[in-house]
Computed example of a mutant assay.
Amino acid sequence: MGLQSTTPMLQKAKANKHGIVAFNVHSFDSIFWVLEAAAELKSPVILQTTVGTVKSLKADNIVRVARAAAEHFNVPTGLHLDHCTDYSVIKEAIRAGYTSVMIDASMHPFEENVARTQEVVALAKTLNVNIEAELGKVGGVEDDIVVAEEDAQKAIPEECKRFVELTGVPTLAPAIGTAHGIYKGKPDIDFKRIEEIAASVDVPLVLHGGSAVPEEDVRHCVQLGMAKVNVSTELKNAYSEAIRQHFIDSPESLDPRAYLQKAKEAAIEMAKSKIQIVGSENTVVPAFV
């Protein structure tokens, strides 16, 4: 099956009122772990990398491994570059074979955000590559992008409508009260705002900062129109903690096969739980399995 554009995947999810989880992967191993979880649950999935991961592993290598894993597990799989501010890195990812990219110009004034997004949409529109853009500012830390809590800004429904009309962007990530990383308290999600934005635009919406959001809140977001739910911190913390616990329990056990097996088990368990929350299990048609 290989890698697919996330545009039809997310449009279908939106129409059927379920979500698709986009998991940040930071290593080649974690690509296989996420896809194994998706295959077990017969769910579509999106593999997602930060700019830092692209610089570390290289876009060509990530695409080769992701494509091989997607063909092996045979579930609908997208490959997304998240929160990119650098046009040259976006071009690199698209040329390598990424099926979705995010241009994040949310730190700029509205007009400049529109212009930068238009540039990327023009680049990708004939290549069957999904484009994601952000309005408002999601708080927290994502690689080198840091938005302090006091600087986080929620998206305005009227601006979302105008932004989609001006750019033609097929996927929109509006800031609605979530944040990247693990929350200190309960996230203050503006469900009314999600509902208003979803009614204003006809494109799938993206929930950034999906780690540690209460299950009932994630389900509510999906029902209101959030078709893509991003998860990063919870996944990497799960397998990193499994490795750390391995060495606490068995400090002399240095065989990578031993501690990576524990990391794999933790990652698969976490990924499956997130897939079940967004309701995408058993949505892959029989021809794909």
Rank of each mutant, 00 (worst) to 15 (best):
M1S: 10
M9L: 15
K17V: 01
G19S: 02
A22D: 02
N24R: 08
V25I: 15
H26T: 15
F28T: 11
D29F: 15
F32V: 13
F32G: 08
A38D: 09
L41P: 06
P44W: 12
P44M: 09
V45C: 15
L47G: 09
T49M: 14
V51D: 14
A59T: 11
A59N: 01
D60H: 14
N61W: 07
N61L: 13
V63Q: 09
R64C: 13
A68E: 14
H72S: 10
V75L: 03
G78C: 10
L79K: 07
L81A: 06
H83P: 08
C84A: 10
Y87C: 00
E92D: 06
I94P: 04
A96V: 05
T99M: 09
S100M: 09
S100K: 04
D104R: 00
M107A: 14
H108S: 10
V114M: 07
V114I: 15
E119H: 14
A124G: 04
T126V: 09
N130Q: 10
A133V: 02
A133R: 00
A133F: 04
L135Q: 09
G139Q: 02
G140L: 03
V147K: 00
E149T: 04
D151N: 15
A152N: 12
K154Q: 09
E158Y: 00
E165G: 01
T167W: 00
T167R: 02
V169A: 01
L172M: 07
P174W: 10
A175G: 11
G177C: 04
G181R: 03
Y183G: 10
K186L: 11
I189H: 11
D190C: 08
I194D: 05
S200G: 15
V203Y: 02
V203T: 05
L205R: 05
H208E: 06
G209E: 04
G209T: 03
G209I: 03
V213E: 13
E215A: 15
E215M: 13
E215I: 15
D217Q: 13
D217N: 08
D217S: 11
D217P: 03
R219L: 10
H220T: 09
V222G: 09
V222A: 06
Q223L: 04
L224V: 12
M226G: 06
K228A: 12
N230V: 04
S232I: 02
T233L: 10
N237T: 12
Y239A: 12
P256M: 13
R257Y: 13
K262I: 15
A267T: 06
I268K: 05
E269I: 03
M270H: 01
A271H: 02
K272W: 00
K274P: 11
K274F: 04
I277M: 11
G279Q: 09
N282T: 10
P286I: 14
P286N: 14
A287K: 01
A287M: 11
V289K: 13
